[in-house]
Each structure stands twice: as C-alpha cells, then as structure tokens.
C-alpha cells in the first residue's frame, strides 16, 4: 500500500438501519422504565464508579440503543444504587444494569 502520509478516518455516523436493537428491546420489556430515560446524566454525575471507570447508566442506555457493546462499562458497576436515587425520571437503573448483565 502506498504511504501518502495521511489516511482515512472512518465516519462516526451510526447507521440506524444496521443497528441490532434486539438486546435493548429485550431489556425494555423486562425494565419498561428504561424507555423513559431522557439522557440527563444525573445517574453518571452521582455514580461513585464513574470518575475512575467511565461507568455511566446514560451511556449504557445510549449504547444499547446503538447496538454497541456495554460489557466493559457494566463490569465497573458496584451496584450501590446511587444512580436510582438521583434519576429524576424514576428509571430503575440498578435493576436495569442487572437485567442487562443477565441478558448478555
């Protein structure tokens, strides 16, 4: 391959037609409150694991909606439940995390 001194970066666009939503839909059936998340980020702000590990319930929900892998993020959760107290929408976050883990 010729070295041009520059290269192509892949587009960050997500093709929603190509996303596998199966896991997200399955989790939503078991934890219906997952659907009412408004991505405010209160869960991530209150999460004790977040500053050290990048754990974020908001990101987990978003990643599920985009068919991305959430294993690494979830492995950092301590199941302390602070996020469920902070959530203004009443998303059952701790249950959501456990449910995702069970369905993986």
């Amino acid at each position: 391959m010729t070295d041009f001194g520059f290269s192509i970066s892949k587009s960050a666009t997500i093709d929603m037609d190509a996303v596998d939503m199966e896991l997200y839909e399955r989790v939503c059936r078991q934890v219906p409150s997952a659907r009412i998340c408004m991505s405010c980020g209160s869960c991530s702000a209150s999460c004790v694991a977040a500053p050290y590990s990048g754990m974020s319930v908001r990101k987990v929900i978003l990643a599920l909606q985009r068919g991305k892998d959430v294993r690494t993020m979830l492995s950092n959760c301590m199941l302390c439940g602070k996020c469920s107290m902070a959530c203004p929408r009443g998303v059952n976050t701790r249950n959501l995390i456990l449910t995702v883990c069970r369905n993986l």
Partner: peptide, 17 residues
C-alpha cells in the same frame, strides 16, 4: 495543509460510502 489531508479524504470517503 498536508497534516490535515486525512480530514479531506475522510470527507470524500464518507460521501462515497
């Protein structure tokens, strides 16, 4: 600017894809 040419071709690539 040669250092920025990756942006240029990435745009074109995005269009072709």
């Amino acid at each position: 600017v040669k250092a920025n040419r990756g942006y240029s071709i990435s745009n074109t690539y995005k269009k072709f894809e």
